Amino acid sequence: MSDLFQSLAASASGMTAQSQRLRHVSENIANADTPGYHRKTISFAETMDGGVTPGPVDLDRSELVQVYDPSHPLADATGHYDGSNVDLVVEVADAREAQRSYEANLRMFDQARQMSQSLFDLLRS
Rank of each mutant, 00 (worst) to 15 (best):
D69Q: 03
S7K: 09
R124F: 08
S11C: 11
D60W: 06
D3V: 07
I29L: 15
A9Y: 13
A95F: 05
V86G: 07
D94Q: 15
E63F: 05
R96I: 15
S11V: 08
Q66N: 03
D58Q: 14
Q117P: 00
G55S: 07
N105P: 05
R113F: 11
H80L: 15
M1C: 03
L74H: 03
G14A: 07
A45V: 11
M1S: 14
K40Q: 13
D49A: 13
D94K: 14
L64T: 09
L88V: 14
Q99H: 09
G14M: 05
A32E: 07
I29P: 03
M1Y: 10
R21Q: 12
D76S: 03
F5Q: 11
Q66C: 00
D69L: 08
A95M: 15
Q20C: 02
Q114S: 09
D76Y: 02
G14N: 02
T78G: 04
F5K: 06
A10D: 12
V89E: 04
T53W: 01
D69N: 13
P56R: 09
D3Y: 10
H24M: 13
L119Y: 11
Y68L: 09
P54V: 15
I42V: 15
L119I: 08
R96L: 15
L22G: 04
A77M: 04
V25K: 06
S71G: 06
S116W: 00
T16R: 12
G36W: 06
D121G: 05
G36S: 01
A98L: 00
F109A: 10
H80M: 15
A112W: 13
E103N: 12
A45L: 06
S19H: 03
Q111S: 10
P35M: 12
L122G: 01
T16K: 14
T41N: 15
R96A: 14
G55N: 05
L22Y: 10
V92R: 12
S118Q: 11
L64Q: 14
L106P: 00
H24S: 07
T41P: 00
Q6P: 00
R124Y: 05
E46A: 13
L119V: 12
H38F: 00
R96W: 08
V86A: 05
S26T: 13
H38S: 00
L59D: 11
V25H: 05
Y68G: 06
S7Y: 00
M1E: 13
A104H: 03
E63G: 15
Q111C: 01
V86W: 07
D3N: 14
A93Y: 01
F5S: 14
A75F: 01
D121Y: 00
T78N: 15
D110K: 14
G55P: 01
L22N: 07
L64A: 11
S62Q: 07
M48D: 11
A30N: 10
V92N: 12
D58I: 05
M15W: 06
A93W: 01
D87F: 10
D58M: 09
S118D: 04
A12Q: 14
S125F: 00
L8G: 00
L74Q: 10
F109E: 01
L123D: 04
V86Q: 02
S125K: 04
G50F: 04
S26V: 09
S2A: 07
L119P: 01
H24C: 06
E97H: 10
F5D: 02
Q6I: 10
Y102H: 12
P54W: 08
A112I: 08
